[in-house]
Each structure stands twice: as structure tokens, then as C-alpha cells.
Design a protein around this nucleic acid. Structure first.
Lengths: 163, 163
DNA sequence: AGCAATATGGTGCAGTGCAGCATATATGTC
DNA sequence: GACATATATGCTGCACTGCACCATATTGCT
């Protein structure tokens, strides 16, 4: 899974399965428990490449069982974020499943399409390096980075140009 | 004003005055009105180099007059942000006065100290360039960027090392 | 004065996010 | 199995974020 943006209409069920499989591996290797609630929250996020708000997750989970309280969702999200399985999109107060295998502290650059809402992760090594340099230049020691770019993805851009 | 991080205990009143003077110039040149409420909100933000939450601003404004409703503050903030006088720190749901003179759309890199809460703006030209390249590489057209680095500022870092 | 545009005030509400406590479920120990 | 411990979930409540909608005041223009 090296593609950054996915074609619209690709098989979500497949990548959701990938994400869950990855999560199980991670949790097993760390002696962490992927409980039913945590798994369900992750499934809902993995089934959408759009970031979901907390209440959207509640609604989604409520579709297949009793309606969970907000705190239940936040607790599941905290667990998933701590294990690098879910990212928070700060500029949207929303959450996104992550199939990649990067540590929770690593720099991830998000590209958020303002038309279709899809979120991609850009190759960030170079960005990470220049950011580190810029921080170093003023004596700042970085711990956690939030890099979120809003704009138009390639697909929506060409749609608009040809439309 | 080229310094990125300011010494603790420097003259806040002075930089607040600078910010207000700059805001008046901007508003005059654009035929925009810096009304009392907008000015007061900007003063409160300029008097603190820490980002303030909406309710902190309400409390601050309430200290010198009637207590404004949240919507009043958000409207003032919207105006100030539209004119590039205030930045939003998405990762904190907070707001920060900006004395610099960059357009509202330009990329700004924030360095947020997790000890003292001070926020600096890093020289971002290089970061901006690599980000643009990374986006371009996947066919993404950027509109607005959020770059927020949490960590330790030089001052708190040396405090911690020597302490 | 009358009209339009803008700014502020007020009420209300949906969403975000967590504290504190009670209950259930798993895990280890005797 | 009985028990203690740790962890996860459920539940209530609340503070903060952010805006919609409408009423009022203020400003500017004719």
C-alpha cells in the first residue's frame, strides 16, 4: 500500500480488512487488546477514507448495536491513536484510520481535499527534514508535529478543469 | 520585529501597542473597521504570547466591561483572521495575535512550547517549498496549510538541562 | 428623514472532549 | 473454584467550541 490517493470507488472493504489485520498484529505484538469496541471504531474509520467526527463515529457504531456514549468513542480513539492506528486531523476535529506502519510520534503530512473530503498522506521525509532544520535554527526541540494541507486532490482538480 | 521567540518577561504592553498600530494601518488601508470589540479582542491576544481559547478571551474582555457572548468573540476573531491579524492554532483550538505582516493565506509554521505555552513562528520559506513539492508530487493543489510543531523552546530546554 | 449595510447582543443548539463513578470483563493467584 | 487486581465499558454530567437565527443599534449614503 504505497499509493497516496486512492481512486474513487475502490474496494473499501478490502482496505478495511487490511487495516484490521495490521491492527491485530500490532496489538498482539505489544500485548494490547483490540477489544470489540476498539475494533468496531477502527472498522468504521477504515471503511471511510474521509476523516470522521466523534459523533459520526457514534452514529456509525449505533447502526449495528446499542448507541455508545461519546466517552466510549473517545476512549477507543485514544487507544487507537496511542498505537498509531488512527490519526487526528486537528484542523477538522476528526479522525482517520491509518494503514501505514509509522510510529505514533513520526511526522505525517496530510493532504485534505476540500471537494471530496478524501485525505492522503504525502511522502514527508523532505518536509520533516526542513522542519527539523527550521526548528533547530531557533533552538526549538520538536516533539510532535501537525502538518495538514487543505486543497484539491488530483482527481477533483482534473474534474474541475475538464468540467 | 524579526525575533522568533521572545525573552520571558519582555514588555508585553509595548508589543501589544505595536500590534494595534499595525492593525489600524491594515484596516485603514482596506477600508475595514477596527471596532471597539475587535480592538479589545486583539489587545487581549496581543497582551499574551500564549494562544488563548475563546472562553479565556471572553473572561479577559469581561474584566473591563460587560461579559460578551461567545458569538461576539467568534465574530471578532473571524474578522481579525480574515485580515491576517490573528492566527488560529488548530491543534489547540486557540487563537494568537500576529504582529508580522503576512497575508492570510501564507504558510506559517508555529512552534508551540509545551512547557511555557509560548508560540513562535519559524522561518518557513524552506518548509513551504518542500511542502509544495511534496504536494505537487501527488498532483495535489494546496490552498491552505496548517503546520504546528509542539516541543520545547530554547529557553525551557536550557532551564530543564541546567535544572 | 429614510434606506441599506454593517456590527453587536441575545437565545439556543449541535458538536467536542473529558471527569468521576459504577459496573462488567479479563487475568492472575491461592 | 474463590478471590483480588487490573482493565474496559457504561452512565451521568459538565465545560468548552462554534455557529444559526433573529433583534437591535450604529454607520453611511441618498
Amino acid at each position: 500500500m504505497t499509493s497516496v490517493f486512492l481512486e474513487p470507488g475502490h474496494n473499501h472493504a478490502h482496505c478495511a480488512a487490511d487495516v484490521i489485520a495490521h491492527a491485530e498484529k500490532i496489538c498482539t505484538s505489544r500485548a494490547q487488546k483490540l477489544t470489540p469496541m476498539r475494533r468496531k471504531v477502527l472498522e468504521m474509520l477504515a471503511g471511510s477514507h474521509k476523516p470522521l467526527g466523534a459523533y459520526e463515529i457514534i452514529d456509525a457504531v449505533a447502526g449495528s448495536g446499542p448507541r455508545p456514549a461519546p466517552i466510549t468513542i473517545y476512549r477507543a480513539l485514544d487507544f487507537l491513536m496511542a498505537n498509531g492506528l488512527v490519526h487526528r486531523i486537528a484542523s477538522r476535529n476528526a479522525f482517520l484510520a491509518c494503514g501505514h506502519n509509522h510510529d505514533s510520534g513520526a511526522l505525517v503530512t496530510f493532504l485534505i481535499c476540500e471537494v471530496c473530503g478524501t485525505v492522503g498522506e504525502a511522502p514527508a521525509a523532505e518536509v520533516s527534514r526542513t522542519l527539523a532544520l527550521a526548528a533547530q535554527g531557533v533552538g526549538f526541540t520538536p516533539k510532535m508535529s501537525v502538518v495538514e494541507i487543505t486543497g484539491l486532490c488530483a482527481h477533483c482538480n482534473s474534474q474541475r478543469a475538464s468540467g
